[in-house]
């Protein structure tokens, strides 16, 4: 067990912790906006730490680039989705408030 693997395992564990925290928050929190807050934490930070932990295990350079690209796309999608959902929920318009 060399130190690089140890560090990578620690990062993956931190990421899994954020995922669990986000899922528990999504189920337990009472309000729609606080649930949105828990969701974006799990999206950005949790997957970020998992990607950071998997980065030293990448077999070649482009695999690492693709890992970073996955995280970047998820961050963009998470920010866009959170803004759109929050705006729709705040104004209460359209079919969202069924």
């Amino acid at each position: 067990m060399d130190p690089v693997q140890l560090l990578s395992g620690a990062f993956v564990l931190v990421g899994a912790f954020f995922f669990i925290a986000g899922t528990v928050g999504l189920i337990r929190l009472p309000d729609r906006f606080s649930r949105l807050h828990a969701l974006t934490k799990a999206d950005n930070v949790g997957l970020g730490f998992v990607v950071l932990g998997l980065m030293p295990l990448a077999p070649d350079f482009f695999y690492g680039v693709k890992l970073a690209l996955v995280w970047l796309l998820v961050v963009i999608a998470g920010a866009t989705g959170a803004h759109l959902i929050a705006k729709r929920a705040l104004r209460g318009d359209g079919e969202d408030v069924v």
Partner: peptide
């Protein structure tokens, strides 16, 4: 949360979290 979520946006948020967790599972 997807099954019981009171509003459709709750369901969509849960589906988004499931997608992100799925990405994590695939990467692992």
């Amino acid at each position: 949360r997807v099954a019981i979520g009171p509003t459709p946006s709750d369901r969509m948020m849960a589906a988004q979290l499931m997608g992100t967790s799925g990405i994590g599972v695939i990467l692992l």
